[in-house]
């Protein structure tokens, strides 16, 4: 269990203690202000090199990480997989070794295979590795930014600074995560983040989209989405990928919307102060109604905005304060 991300890799949110997560959220709060300045930059990682390696398509996560690194004054090496030697059959180990030879302090890695970030951390033990999504396994910064967004919204409502609340606002908070949990790295990281912070996590999905052995997860399973609407404090929706909704895992996307979509009618039955999250990209009309996505309760754009300070905090804690010489 990691009690502080300082000088550590971020591979799996399940490795982080409540203290470590709160530290990230608090540091992220301090970076929010930087993002409001005219000159959105601090010298925290000046002279450090962050490599951004996305082996899988991504728009928002990649932009968010690279923006965060630049606002910390790091130099960013960005590997575009489509034009790289990876396409020519270069192995992950060789690609990492090549990038490492250029002199880097951190790697932000997105890969289609579960565990890829853990493997890369073994290849380059002197480099900090930040998992930006590995297969179905983890998307730790998404879990952190979801918690950050929820904490910010709840603290505003109470009129207190978020950083003064620690994990208090999560105590007893009822978080309902709905959708394709089985194939979702976001769900795994969200469950880790919310449960570490003290929230009660509930999952709701067609049985075919629940993970195997879900009874061993630290969550409750809700069979009826409609009943859960009455008490959920936070509703986190997940993307239904079309290949899962065409007769393979559920009969059709239309039937999925019928049983598990957050329609306008369902949104009206939520508690008035309930918060709605979605990690994007949204399938409007499938997992949520287009009008619901644009309600004030929807924090979708705030989640995107939170991504930058949260990833600044992660990079800062993980990379700053340690040098390669100390690590070697």
């Amino acid at each position: 269990m990691i009690d502080s991300l300082r000088g550590q890799n971020l591979l799996d949110l399940g490795d982080l203690s409540r203290e470590a997560i709160v530290e990230v959220l608090d540091v992220a709060e301090s970076f929010v202000e930087v993002n409001r300045r005219t000159v959105k930059k601090v010298p925290a990682l000046k002279g450090r090199v962050v490599a951004s390696l996305f082996f899988e398509e991504s728009t928002r996560t990649r932009l968010s990480f690279e923006t965060a690194a630049k606002r910390l004054s790091a130099d960013v090496l960005s590997l575009a997989v489509a034009s790289s030697s990876v396409k020519k059959g270069e192995s992950l180990r060789d690609t990492i070794a090549t990038i490492d030879a250029l002199g880097i302090d951190a790697v932000v890695l997105r890969h289609r295979s579960s565990g890829a970030a853990r493997q890369v951390s073994r290849y380059v033990p002197h480099v900090r590795v930040i998992n930006a999504g590995d297969g179905l396994h983890q998307h730790p910064t998404q879990g952190l930014l979801d918690a950050f967004t929820v904490r910010a919204a709840l603290s505003e409502r109470r009129g207190v600074p978020a950083a003064s609340t620690g994990a208090d606002l999560f105590d007893g908070l009822r978080v309902l995560i709905v959708g394709d949990i089985m194939h979702s790295r976001v769900a795994r990281s969200d469950v880790d983040a919310y449960t570490a912070l003290g929230a009660q996590v509930h999952l709701c999905a067609p049985a075919t989209l629940l993970p195997t052995e879900v009874a061993t997860w630290p969550v409750s399973i809700e069979e009826d989405f409609d009943e859960a609407l009455a008490w959920a404090d936070v509703v986190g929706l997940l993307r239904l990928q079309h290949e899962r909704g065409s007769g393979v895992f559920v009969p059709s996307t239309a039937e999925y919307t019928l049983t598990h979509g957050l329609t306008l009618d369902r949104a009206r039955r939520l508690k008035p102060d309930a918060l709605i999250l979605h990690p994007g990209p949204m399938n409007r009309g499938v997992e949520l109604d287009s009008r619901v996505a644009d309600l004030p309760a929807s924090l979708v754009t705030r989640q995107v905005a939170s991504g930058v300070p949260v990833r600044m905090a992660v990079l800062f804690l993980s990379v700053a304060g340690t040098t390669k010489e100390e690590r070697r």
Binding site: G135, L136, H137, T212, V214, T216, W217
Partner: peptide
């Protein structure tokens, strides 16, 4: 192996 661990690791299982 499909089970508690594969579920956590996000690896598709072989039951």
């Amino acid at each position: 192996n499909e089970g508690v661990l594969s579920s956590r690791l996000g690896l598709v299982g072989r039951p």
